[in-house]
Design a protein around this nucleic acid. Structure first.
Lengths: 340, 340
DNA sequence: TTTCCCAACGTTAGCGTTAACGTTAATATC
DNA sequence: GATATTAACGTTAACGCTAACGTTGGGAAA
């Protein structure tokens, strides 16, 4: 299989040293570009190490305590353009600064996240990016003990582990609901997923409920679906519609749920926005190709990633001033709700 | 910051040993559950280590030659439910077997992939998962030299780096086109992205072209879009429709493009399937909530992940027999094409 | 010439952990 | 009672690499 038969055992620095007829330390210096080796010998050693296919063992390296140039990024899921968008903002900045990124998904499972954080911390990462503001005390302490620069994205919090760039989801929900109330909607419904899965969604719903309560209007009829597929949004809307009293405005977990709800309306012959208003969240690409422009709140996902990466990098360079940023959502008055 | 002020330096096994009044080795044995420690002392040591917040350093562990328990996974992008689906099949199996996964995206850039593979190889991974069958000779040799068990998913190839689980995209395109020809379609169109970005898409298109050429029918009118957003599918269909001769069947890069095309038809008042047939690819969730069920070829993404993970794990356990598998797509006759 | 200096190397001592092999004392065997 | 056995520990030597310090030899300064 391998062209080089000696590769059965991994080639280590010692082998390179032997082949070059120098000491291990000289090879180490030559390969790292540290001074203390003549230029001729350095070139020679580099050539030999490449020919032998030598790769330094980062485990041994980081045992020495050096930082690893590695940034761990954790998202709840990748079945969601929101996180792909944030990642799209984060990664180029990290790569441009010579960091390597490793991505994880937690599937909205706190234990999974904790286990992954432990694992990544053991690699002595240069930095960490976590989603949201809700992490157990274990995670918080583990990170703070090791003093790893850490960015929390997507959600905004006053008490971040380290720094934080995100939107206030409670307020985003509140503002969206206020706008709908201003349009004359009185009977709210909500289609989302089960409790405890998505903390940000719960905060938005809180904001919505608060706005309607504050206005002295009816409680929000909640429809919780087991999954987060398009079908869940579709079925969820139908189930909600079958209940009494019928909502005149339905808020959805996200745009993709709202889209599915819109499709359900189309099939069921429900006129939007005359019979019911639909409001999504996020301002995803998909809203651009719908027959009716969706009313939603656009979240600045790429910008969030870009800004977050920038601030985290500053943090890793020792900047300690105010690096947490709250970004705003942009309300989009679409055609799935009444005109103002 | 930290509750334990002594935590400024990380607590190591030595500290636990000192606190428990035993040797380092006894702590190591106690914590790993290896025999050679009395049950009483074991409990006592575990209690102390927890109180001190001791975490074994896996770098030091894997320095001892043990496998790193790490599996690197590389996808072209995460803005695509296809890869999220495959990952969803892969990961549980890996986690159940005690492996940690790190995910990368290449953005369809071969250089990025190569750089990432180099990086991951230096961590001595237990295994590797790559997307597709097209990797440079550098990547192939780097992996084979180190004898890292490697799975190539999504695409099927006769000459994998190591093992391979996927579908034959050329044939999938061919079969889909054959079915459309059988329905009486004669004038094919295609909406996709620019050359060289997505190898699998090109193979499918090849298959489509081959089927039409074989049947002595017109060439496929290609419309290449710069991006892969929903809007690209939407605009691409409109642009294609404006050309002469108008196609009577349009194949799309993927279901999400086809969905956008369907929305364009709806807005433009084009009757589907009377005026034009639409065919997607993949059988994504979104097709379940469309007003017309989309004609497409379902790819077994989760299954691919599950099977791939299983085979890769077998490979890591030393099995060397036939672990490459070609999976089949399932043709779905929807409502966006004529009835058979 | 002698002394000093300084590139250009080599040696030593870890980093935190575990495999492999001692050691000890109590119990079992004859 | 002498020897063998064994549970329950401790010691030593790696794992692959690098920081810190030691050594060497040739050229510059005295």
């Amino acid at each position: 299989m391998a062209r080089k038969s000696r590769a059965s055992k991994l080639v280590k620095i010692e082998d390179v040293a032997a082949a070059a007829g120098v000491s291990i330390m000289t090879v180490s210096r030559a390969l790292r570009g540290v001074e203390g080796v003549s230029e001729g010998k350095r070139l020679e050693i580099i050539e030999i190490s490449q020919r032998l296919g030598y790769r330094p063992n980062p485990n041994a390296r980081s045992l020495m305590g050096g930082a690893s140039g590695l940034i761990g990024i954790s998202f709840p899921t990748l079945f969601n353009d929101v996180f792909a968008g944030i990642l799209d903002g984060l990664r180029p900045a990290f790569e441009a600064n010579g960091f390597t990124t490793v991505v994880n998904t937690t599937e909205y499972d706190a234990d999974r996240e904790r286990a992954w954080v432990e694992q990544v911390l053991s690699w002595r990462p240069a930095g960490l990016v976590l989603t949201g503001a809700d992490h157990g005390p274990t995670v918080r302490e583990a990170i703070q003990t090791r003093q790893i620069p850490t960015l929390q994205v997507w959600d905004f919090t006053d008490a971040p582990i380290d720094i934080c760039v995100g939107v206030d989801h409670q307020n985003a929900g509140y503002q969206l609901a206020r706008a709908m109330i201003a349009l004359g909607y009185r009977q709210p419904g909500y289609v989302g997923i089960q409790h405890g899965k998505d903390q940000r969604a719960e905060k938005r719903l809180n904001g919505i409920c608060h706005a309607f309560a504050e206005a002295g209007l009816g409680a929000v009829a909640e429809m919780r679906m087991p999954g987060s597929s398009y079908r869940a949004g579709y079925d969820g809307f139908q189930a909600l519609w079958a209940q009494a009293p019928r909502p005149d405005i339905v808020f959805f977990l996200s745009d993709h749920f709202a889209f599915a709800g819109l499709m359900a309306c189309q099939v069921m012959g429900i006129r939007v926005p005359d019979e019911v208003g639909l409001a999504g969240f996020n301002g995803l690409d998909i809203t651009e190709v719908l027959p009716l422009r969706l009313t939603t709140a656009r979240t600045p996902r790429r910008k969030m990633g870009v800004q977050g990466a920038k601030n985290l990098i500053a943090r890793m360079h020792g900047v300690s001033s105010d690096l947490s940023v709250e970004l705003q959502t942009e309300l989009i008055h679409g055609e799935t709700t009444r005109r103002p």
